[in-house]
């Protein structure tokens, strides 16, 4: 007798047929199921559900059930991530408030057996920075993206608090403490990051009077765009409450320009262009020094994320040459930090 064990994809397809049928009210056939990027822990799957002749292009985001894996210090960078249920509610609130975000449809139930996750509508466009920055189909989009990102961000920061799930509030001082903790866990002396964190500590902005929804990872690579420009903001796991300028600063970190270094707004425009669009769409007036502070902070943050990614491999949590190699990218942010600290806005 041969025992047929379901592959991961077969298992996912079977469960999706059941849950999509439940949601749409009919018998669902699952077609074109494929695993997109992402690691073993936070997965994205693309598929079509065909229900009564109607085809729905969908995306599954899920964290597979963890089988008693101990939490390692490599995962400290994950501790700032919200869980899938919270991400679902943040996305729903943002979509209802008119933010260009995917429309979420339903969550997985615990006894569906796929772990925590949810299903949303698939949106057209690419997130690949290299294509958006250089390929001919995006010639027109390239002129619009910086302004669109400013506009969308203003809307995102205006999502009413009443519609949001409980989120952690993180102000400048909390972020500095978090990065120092991360450095201590990595346990390798990092003079440039220490210098930058002390620089940031001495100049940190006061807590915001009215904290807003902060996306937390608003950058090129984390939104979809087509020939007309931005179609959807993705990757909301870093959502929290805080200073709206945090997202503006992070978007301008040099690493997110993917080589288009003279265009700080995600590789597509100037800071001034971004800020003007943001203000025009209802965002607060951008204070240049405060935005610079968040850009410096974002540069530190990305450098320490590089070390944390490498540590996931080094600790044995997830063997990966790709993760290991990211550790050697941290020095790029050290170069940028020494430049930024001298530019002294």
């Amino acid at each position: 007798m041969t025992v047929h064990t379901l592959t991961e994809a077969e298992n996912v397809a079977a469960v999706l047929a059941r849950v999509a049928g439940r949601h749409f009210g009919g018998v669902a056939a699952i077609e074109k199921l494929s695993r997109e990027s992402g690691g073993a822990s936070r997965q994205t799957w693309s598929f079509d559900a065909v229900v009564d002749g109607a085809r729905h292009g969908l995306i599954l985001r899920r964290d597979p059930p963890i089988l008693g894996a101990p939490r390692t210090k490599a995962e400290t960078d994950r501790s700032v991530s919200i869980d899938r249920g919270t991400e679902f509610r943040v996305l729903r609130a943002a979509f209802l408030a008119g933010v260009r975000a995917p429309e979420v449809l339903f969550e997985l139930a615990p006894d569906d057996g796929l772990g925590e996750g949810f299903v949303m509508r698939r949106i057209g466009g690419t997130a690949i920075a290299r294509k958006l920055l250089r390929d001919p189909p995006y010639d027109q989009a390239r002129k619009k993206i910086a302004g669109q990102l400013g506009e969308i961000l203003a809307r995102l920061h205006a999502v009413p608090a009443a519609g949001l799930p409980p989120l952690t509030r993180r102000e400048a001082a909390d972020h500095i403490a978090g990065q120092r903790r991360a450095l201590d866990l990595l346990d390798r002396p990092q003079p440039v990051f220490e210098l930058a964190l002390s620089w940031l500590d001495r100049r940190k902005p006061a807590p915001t009077a009215e904290p807003v929804l902060v996306h937390g990872d608003y950058r090129t690579g984390n939104y979809l765009a087509d020939e007309m420009g931005v179609t959807a903001i993705l990757d909301w796991e870093g959502a929290h409450l805080g200073d709206p300028l945090e997202d503006l600063g992070w978007l301008c970190v040099k690493s997110w320009r993917f080589g288009a270094v003279d265009k700080p707004a995600g590789g597509f425009g100037s800071r001034e262009e971004l800020w003007a669009a943001y203000e025009q769409a209802g965002g607060i007036k951008v204070d240049a020094a405060r935005a610079h502070w968040w850009e410096v902070f974002g540069t530190v943050r990305w450098g320490i994320i590089c070390h944390n990614q490498a540590w996931r491999h080094l600790s044995g949590a997830l063997k990966s040459m790709e993760l290991a190699s990211i550790g050697r990218r941290a020095v790029e942010t050290e170069v940028d930090l020494l430049q930024l600290l001298k530019s002294g806005v």
């Binding site: 120092r180 002396p189 003079p191 220490e194 210098l195 964190l197 002390s198 620089w199 001495r202």
Partner: peptide
């Protein structure tokens, strides 16, 4: 390690 300590303590800066 010593330099990193001084930089965090703020006894040396930019």
């Amino acid at each position: 390690r010593e330099l990193a300590r001084q930089l965090r303590a703020g006894t040396r800066d930019e």
